[in-house]
Design a protein around this nucleic acid. Structure first.
Length: 567
DNA sequence: GCCGTTTTCGGCCCGACTGTTTTCAGTCG
């Protein structure tokens, strides 16, 4: 049995135990064991002494050996017999946890969402100790819609809502500071809700103003320090607001940025020093609570460097502190190698894009309009591209603080050929090859197309290598490890497209590419001046893969970039 | 269930909020 299946099985066991109302620490032990396996880079066959791993003991170890040797686990089979699988989805209902579900099962024989609904309708649930009328009504309401409501939202939709909320918060004078926290701040691809942390002078007033300013469909909770609402939007996303004082703000921001695993590790560290971390500060051994002006100060208190939110992941970041200084930062970026103008489907002229890039402090840039095949995007024919090159060369004479390279985003056609001939490609400074069509071809055919581009000596970069749109379409699903291997072999750059709809390559593949020293370019693919601003989103997403500055092309000097192109 | 330079028992990160209670358990993040 492979490692992934074993990890999933351990998690499943934890889930079933939870449904039995088991001791949370015992449940946690199985989750911990699963995580231990997941974080270990070795394959199962190379892990000879499983019991020596921290977090795996007699109980979890025997489950793992059972799975390896017999391909099944007696423990899981017993649990599956004792706990109806119809209870699993009930854990998704807000307000229901293992203990309550166990009680519903034991006392009322509930074994599925349907039987729970029936019991609520009969009024049986409210008669149970610990349950009441309100709980029953709430459950009924949740049950009606809970299959159809999405529970997590792609980063680009969260991005839009965050901006809307920030706009409202900036109008409230009683808020001195605010920040989005949670998984959006960590730049995860999906978030289940949005967290905001703010320093306020008058919590009650702020609470009222927020409730008035936002389109709210439901107030989930409204306490003194916390307001939780469901927004009345196309997708009913939950938003939490936490009010604290200015002094507490840095600690609160850290706390609500997470991740959960990061926080647990930090608290364990504090505890080993006789201190206690909460969202309000750090309690010292003498009971006094120390607060911090910034998150940097907070980390410093534990002799740690600032750990960017994007690196606060599974807790292992605390073991990789010496790598942090070399991880890419938004201010390291001095170029953008992929953007469009009015020549194809962009909204601004070449000169407008140049001016905007200068304002952003870019030292060099590449104009890469679409090629002729992409008619919907007004792709350039070879003669129009030659004209554009002339215009760019002329425009360059006006600027000595930015280099403007002539490029193209050339289509790789469905039949595997390239959209321009070699003669034209040779005259360009920079050639991007992309797939924009026939996504549903079999993987072999897709890979054939990509290989053509890889083998062409004039092609410098493969853009958005999988074509995915987060939460909407998977893309053309190439064999990415193979694609990365080819990039290594043929000396090509792979793109991390910074557009929040794409973020392509994805995190796990960026890790793979970096391991092979394949250069990565983080580009905006901007179709307007405004879209040039997505760069930090891409950089921060790259941080999640621990991308090193050195491996990111856009940090290279113009000379180094040019000599790479000449190779 | 796991762990241990304060070890083989007694903790395991910490606090807010709700709904059910009449001082707190369960859930959530």
């Amino acid at each position: 049995m492979n490692k992934k299946t074993i990890i999933r099985t351990l998690e499943k066991i934890a889930l079933y135990m939870e449904l039995q109302g088991e001791n949370p620490f015992k449940v946690g032990a199985f989750r911990k064991a699963a995580q231990t396996l997941e974080l270990d880079p070795r394959s199962l066959s190379k892990m000879d002494d499983i019991l020596s791993l921290k977090g795996i003991g007699k109980g979890t170890g025997s489950v793992i050996t059972d799975l390896m040797e017999k391909g099944k686990s007696d423990l899981l089979e017993e649990l599956e017999e004792a706990v109806p699988s119809g209870l699993l989805p009930l854990l998704k209902l807000p307000g229901l946890g293992g203990k309550k579900i166990a009680k519903l099962h034991q006392e009322l024989g509930i074994d599925s969402p349907e039987s729970l609904q029936a019991a609520c309708e009969r009024g049986d649930v409210s008669k149970l100790a610990g349950f009441g009328k309100k709980t029953e009504e709430k459950l009924l309401k949740e049950l009606e819609s809970f299959q159809s409501i999405p529970t997590h939202f792609p980063i680009w939709s969260i991005d839009a809502i965050v901006k809307m909320i920030e706009q409202e918060l900036s109008n409230i004078e009683e808020i001195s500071k605010y920040s989005v926290a949670g998984s959006y701040r960590r730049r995860k691809e999906f978030s289940s809700d949005i967290d905001f942390v703010m320093a306020v002078t008058d919590p009650e007033k702020v609470r009222e103003k927020i409730l008035n300013a936002l389109p709210i469909s439901e107030i989930v909770a409204a306490g003194d320090t916390k307001v939780s609402v469901k927004l009345d939007m196309q997708d009913p996303v939950d938003v939490d607001f936490r009010f604290v004082t200015e002094e507490q703000y840095a600690s609160t921001l850290h706390h609500f940025t997470g991740s959960k695993e990061h926080n647990v590790k930090m608290r364990q560290l504090a505890k080993s020093l006789g201190k206690k971390i909460s969202e309000y500060g750090v309690e010292q051994e003498d009971g006094s609570v120390k607060t911090f002006k910034t998150e940097e100060e907070f980390f410093q208190h534990f002799n740690l460097p600032f750990i960017p939110p994007t690196l606060r992941k599974d807790g292992t970041e605390l073991d990789r502190l010496d790598e942090i200084p070399s991880v890419i930062q938004p201010e390291d970026i001095i170029s953008d190698l992929h953007m469009h103008t009015t020549w194809s489907d962009g909204a601004h002229s070449i000169q407008e894009m140049v001016e905007a890039n200068r304002l952003l402090g870019r030292r060099y840039m590449v104009i890469t309009d679409h090629s002729q095949y992409l008619k919907v995007a007004n792709g350039l024919t070879s003669s129009r591209l030659r004209k554009q090159m002339e215009e760019i060369r002329k425009l360059q004479l006006q600027y000595d603080d930015i280099r403007i390279f002539c490029g193209t985003e050339m289509d790789i056609l469905p039949d595997g050929s390239l959209d321009f001939d070699d003669e034209l490609l040779a005259d360009l400074d920079f050639v991007i090859a992309s797939i924009h069509s026939s996504f549903s071809q079999p993987q072999e055919k897709i890979m054939e197309r990509i290989l053509t581009a890889m083998k062409n000596p004039h092609v410098d970069m493969i853009a958005h290598p999988t074509g995915r749109i987060i939460g909407q379409r998977p893309g053309y699903e190439p064999d990415v490890p193979q694609l990365i291997q080819w990039a290594k072999e043929y000396g090509k750059i792979l793109e991390l497209n910074a557009n929040p709809f794409r973020l392509d390559l994805a995190e796990e593949y960026l890790v793979m590419a970096q391991e092979l020293d394949v250069p990565i370019a983080i580009n905006t693919d901007a179709h307007s001046i405004e879209q040039l601003n997505v760069m930090p989103i891409g950089v921060q997403y790259g941080q999640r893969a621990w991308l090193k500055k050195e491996n990111v092309v856009n940090t290279w000097s113009v000379n180094r970039f040019e000599s790479f192109l000449k190779k």
